[in-house]
């Protein structure tokens, strides 16, 4: 099988998998990074959201051979200690319920705030609507993003 070397959360990792293997399964099955979740496998739920060179990407659709030297950032690499502003706001608002969608929500919100440090409701709608949550945490997600944008103030 082909060998690939990819940079994940700042570390170079070597894997030996078929070229068409989605990044999602490389992360979960090969690298034991199970924070990135499987929800649909077809680009419809974004439970699998990661950053590729800072851009949001669907790990279930991106294949290992297409990664090249792009840097992969997963939820495990977002911060060491829950100190990312999005994580802080998420804790303040107590967003999670079952939690399965939450890594994808947090990674997407982090990318949104990189692009729009003070997002409008419309921008939040546009960026966050692709990320499904079956538990209905949407209202709190909106609140938490506004809170993170204000630097943690209520």
């Amino acid at each position: 099988m082909p060998k690939y070397s990819i940079t994940v959360n700042g570390t170079i990792r070597a894997v030996d998998v078929p070229a068409d293997t989605p990044l999602l399964w490389v992360l979960r099955d090969e690298l034991d990074l199970t924070g990135t979740k499987y929800g649909c496998g077809t680009g419809q739920c974004r439970s699998c959201a990661v950053h590729l060179d800072g851009e949001i990407a669907y790990a279930c659709l991106v294949t290992i051979q297409s990664i090249g030297d792009q840097e992969v950032l997963t939820i495990e690499g977002l911060s060491d200690d829950l100190s990312h502003p999005v994580q802080k706001a998420w804790l303040d608002v107590d967003v999670p319920q079952c939690g399965w969608c939450q890594p994808g929500q947090v990674m997407t919100a982090a990318a949104l705030l990189e692009e729009h440090p003070s997002p409008t409701d419309e921008q939040i709608d546009e960026w966050m609507s692709p990320v499904l949550c079956r538990c209905g945490t949407y209202g709190r997600i909106r609140t938490a993003i506004h809170r993170a944008a204000r630097g943690g103030d209520r």
Partner: peptide, 14 residues
């Protein structure tokens, strides 16, 4: 359970 659900450390069945 919120902290472990937003840093990827919570372990689910899968």
């Amino acid at each position: 359970d919120s902290p472990s659900k937003i840093d990827g450390s919570a372990i689910f069945g899968m």
